[in-house]
Design a protein around this nucleic acid. Structure first.
Length: 421
DNA sequence: TCTGGGGTCCTAGGACCC
DNA sequence: TCTGGGGTCCTAGGACCC
């Protein structure tokens, strides 16, 4: 049996933990650049705010209902997430952290599953202050479905267990096919043309049809819904296959110099991620694009990939390569909205093969990067930078107008509790 | 004026090899 | 004049997830 633990309105709930006045009020959290709504408290859902809607489109709604708006604060959410996961690990050695706000917990051989679920819920609320729901089923996909029901129907008290045939049937009938884990917009549309409306309908489709139109991924989903486990717990995190850092700009950027400053900043971040993985990248891709929503302006999107002579984790080398790629994709006369870098061919550092014609002093780079990481870890990631990242005010920087403090990870942001004299 | 970011997996088709 | 078959690897694109 598997339990799926999912935090309710996670980002919005995080904001509430250190700011209890938000309790009972509609709260939303925005994507990077204060673009779209990516998390909503229950109250925000009730007043009709849709997931993913750009904030500028709901100005009126926000004003009318006094909705509290926050920029996303991943430092805060990441820290609270870890605390939640640590609690779950007390219940089972098998915890797969699936995303920042979700984890699968292996419950093999355990009894009193519903009570265990309730206990998890209470512990997380008591110790971190985050509300969660728990769904339990024979397969991961059924656990997902159970979780959805637990969220949707108050009667479950936040914990839903599917442990027999009757409950499974009932749960599948109550779930629309587009709400099944792994069925996205495209497949949902195709299925609706066949009058497949619920998860239960989907399980009755001929397997050949599913295989043909939805590949073996679809077949696997079907089997999982029928109660045959096909997706096992992923307990050791696999090595990443690609590492990407990209951002939209607060406003359009026209010059190569400014684009380069932004790109160099992303490359530096990418380098840090690569070194955290104790890995090297074999190839680097740079991409840049204009604002795809502005149909009234000329559109352009360029991308180019280059192999490195020797796989590397040195920000300096990556930066040099990226700068070169940018020069080649840059076209004058466009307003750029986004730029990014992707590292491919990620291999463990100790498996890197050298090259006879390699002219780089790798030991030197290595100690330089070690020093740089140490300083930046201690004094903030912008303490030591590349000159090419630019100085002074950055026209391209993110918009973050509603950022909350990092209550749990920064000394200066810690709450001060005043006792009444 | 203002529309996110970071991933994974699968398939088809082309290049290439013997 | 006649021009195979089997296999691997790589890439681009699609679909999906949170």
């Amino acid at each position: 049996m598997y339990a799926l633990v999912d935090c309710n309105s996670f980002y919005a709930s995080c904001e509430r933990v250190f700011n209890p006045q938000l309790e009972g009020l509609p709260v939303v959290v925005l994507s990077n650049n204060d673009g779209c709504v990516v998390a909503r408290s229950a109250e925000a859902k009730t007043v009709g705010i849709q997931m993913g809607v750009p904030i500028f489109k709901i100005k009126e709604l926000v004003k009318r209902h006094d909705v509290r708006v926050f920029s996303s604060n991943y430092t805060l959410y990441g820290d609270l997430s870890q605390r939640v996961m640590n609690i779950l690990k007390r219940y089972s050695p098998d915890v797969e952290v699936y995303s920042i706000d979700e984890a699968f917990v292996g419950m093999k051989g355990m009894a009193h599953l519903e009570e265990l679920g309730k206990s998890m819920k209470e512990a997380v609320m008591r110790e971190v202050g985050i509300p969660i729901c728990v769904g339990i089923g024979k397969t991961k996909t059924l656990a997902k479905i159970a979780n959805r029901l637990a969220k949707k129907h108050k009667g479950f008290g936040g914990v839903c267990l599917i442990d027999d045939e009757i409950k499974r049937q009932k749960a599948l009938e109550l779930t629309s096919v587009e709400d099944v884990w792994g069925i996205g917009r495209k497949h949902a549309k195709r299925l609706s043309l066949l009058s497949v409306r619920t998860a239960s309908d989907f399980t009755h489709l001929p397997a050949q049809w599913v295989k043909k139109h939805m590949s073996i991924v679809g077949l696997r989903m079907q089997r999982e819904l029928q109660g045959y486990s096909c997706i096992s717990l992923d307990l050791v995190r696999e090595r990443k296959k690609s590492i990407c850092v990209s951002r939209s700009f607060g406003k359009d950027i026209h010059t190569l110099d400014e684009l380069k400053e932004a790109l160099m900043t992303h490359v530096m971040q990418c380098g840090i991620k690569i070194r955290e993985e104790k890995a090297c990248a074999s190839a680097l891709q740079v991409f840049a694009s204009t604002n795809r929503f502005r149909h009234d302006r000329p559109q352009y999107s360029g991308q180019l990939t280059a192999n490195l002579l020797v796989p590397s984790d040195s920000s300096l080398e990556l930066a040099k390569c990226a700068a070169n790629l940018l020069q080649r994709i840059f076209k004058e006369g466009y307003g750029y909205k986004k730029i990014g870098v992707v590292a491919y061919g990620i291999i463990p550092k100790n498996e890197v093969t050298g090259n006879l014609f390699d002219a780089v002093d790798r030991d030197k780079h290595e100690s330089l990067m070690r020093g740089l990481d140490m300083i930046n870890a201690k004094f903030g990631k912008s303490c030591v930078q590349l000159a090419s990242q630019g100085f002074g005010k950055k026209a391209w920087s993110l918009r973050q107008e509603h950022l909350s403090p990092c209550y749990s990870t920064s000394w200066k942001d810690m709450l001060v509790i005043k006792a009444d004299a």
